[in-house]
């Protein structure tokens, strides 16, 4: 995958497959210049005898082990970071990824606005919360906010989709610019 936002799109599809109707996507840059990504959902979570990052373990018949988390985990490790995949305290899955901004192996975050837009527009009955933080400053967007302003039907309108994508990409570049972060 050429962008981190594609990995995020992939991981969020796992959440949808697990029956979630509320997915939170948090992206942040911390004081030590690590890119932190956290995806939490309210789906059925991981089976207790299933280790999502261990490809060599024999799997129960009928359970398909995908490659998405493993690929993302490999990427994080190669960027001086790590990935953890576990069940949240209140159920659902919790994926946390950490990558060093300065690692030469790190792909760009990429078109995260496009990722969020497609998730929202193509899954109008799922609530997606998005948050982007640089150090301690950030912004957020939630499907619930959008629906409360324009109604659920309007999610299928092109102008709303364009707004969502523009909202995220412009605010991200503004924040990154403010802290002089380049090549995120």
């Amino acid at each position: 995958m050429t962008e981190i936002s594609l990995h995020i799109l992939d991981i969020v599809h796992n959440s949808l497959k697990a029956g979630s109707d509320h997915v939170k996507i948090g992206i942040g840059i911390d004081q030590r210049d690590f890119l932190l990504i956290k995806i939490t959902d309210n789906g059925k979570g991981f089976d207790k005898d299933f280790s999502p990052l261990n490809q060599s373990k024999s799997i129960k018949p009928g359970i398909k082990n995908g490659l998405g988390l493993i690929l993302f985990s490999e990427l994080c490790t190669s960027c001086d970071g790590m990935l953890s995949a576990k069940n949240g305290d209140k159920g659902g899955a919790e994926i946390t990824a950490k990558l060093s901004l300065s690692s030469p192996n790190r792909p760009v975050l990429g078109k995260i606005g496009s990722t969020y837009r497609l998730l929202t527009v193509c899954n109008p009955h799922i609530c997606f919360d998005f948050e982007y933080t640089v150090y301690s400053e950030g912004f957020s967007l939630s499907t619930a906010d959008i629906i409360s302003r324009v109604g659920r039907d309007a999610l299928s309108d092109l102008s709303v989709g364009e707004f969502i994508e523009g909202f995220i990409s412009r605010n991200i570049s503004e924040l990154n610019g403010k802290y002089d972060l380049k090549g995120i």
Binding site: F139, L141, D145, I146, R149, V150, G151, A154, D157, S159, V160, F163, G166, F167, R170, N171, E174
Partner: peptide, 15 residues
């Protein structure tokens, strides 16, 4: 900063 309030203008058009 782009604010979510800008959606209200889109809503007007959608009406």
């Amino acid at each position: 900063m782009v604010t979510i309030a800008e959606l209200d203008a889109i809503k007007e058009k959608l009406k």
